Computed example of a mutant assay.
Amino acid sequence: MEAVILTGIARRVLDELIRNPYRTIELRSARNVLAVEEALKEALKLFLTYDPFEDVSTGTEGLLAEILEAKEINTRIPWEESDEREITVCRAKVKLVGLGRVVEVERRDGILVARVRELFPHEMSIG
């Protein structure tokens, strides 16, 4: 199955998604926001992983999820130390589909899209 990869997802979020298959995640990384947009446009699943963008390769493990809805929110930054005054946040409501492992990964316009093989729980070595 093909999925868009969300990288650098906190272990706490991954653990909560395993315990409760429905969750709204808040994404601030520009790559992850673009990845959600791509997944919505192409009707693809999401692959959520703890690994950073640069480390995702064949064999990377994570969670497969379906996007139920997503919206972008522009927020003002209240402190003066930042060179930016606004930040775009994406809130995506997802449903856990299962566990997965990357078989093949491809970069498309700054995001990662992968062929993912669904795993059985005993095959997973994450965490």
Rank of each mutant, 00 (worst) to 15 (best):
V105K: 02
G98N: 04
E118N: 10
R115D: 06
V94W: 07
R23M: 09
L119Q: 12
E61M: 12
C90W: 07
E42L: 14
V105M: 14
I67P: 05
E2A: 01
I18H: 09
S125E: 12
A65E: 04
I5Q: 00
E84F: 15
A92C: 04
G110S: 11
I87A: 12
S29V: 05
L27M: 11
G62F: 01
E123G: 02
V56T: 12
I25V: 13
T60P: 05
M1G: 12
Y22M: 09
L63T: 04
L48N: 09
E61I: 09
I126D: 11
G98H: 07
G110Y: 01
R19L: 15
A114D: 04
Y22P: 03
V36R: 03
I111C: 06
N74D: 07
A65K: 00
E106D: 10
R31P: 14
D15P: 09
T49N: 05
S57Y: 07
P21C: 01
T88Y: 10
A43Y: 13
I67K: 11
I18Y: 12
R108D: 08
C90Y: 00
F53K: 02
D15R: 06
I25H: 02
I9T: 08
E54R: 09
S125W: 00
R117A: 05
V116L: 00
T7W: 04
W79L: 15
G98R: 05
I9Y: 10
R101K: 08
E72W: 12
L119K: 00
L6N: 04
R101E: 11
G127Y: 01
R23G: 13
L6H: 00
L14F: 06
I9W: 08
L44A: 06
T7E: 01
P21A: 02
D51N: 06
L112F: 05
D51G: 01
E61V: 03
R11P: 14
Y22L: 15
A114S: 03
L99D: 03
A3Y: 00
E61D: 09
D83S: 15
T60W: 11
P52Q: 09
E84T: 14
V105S: 10
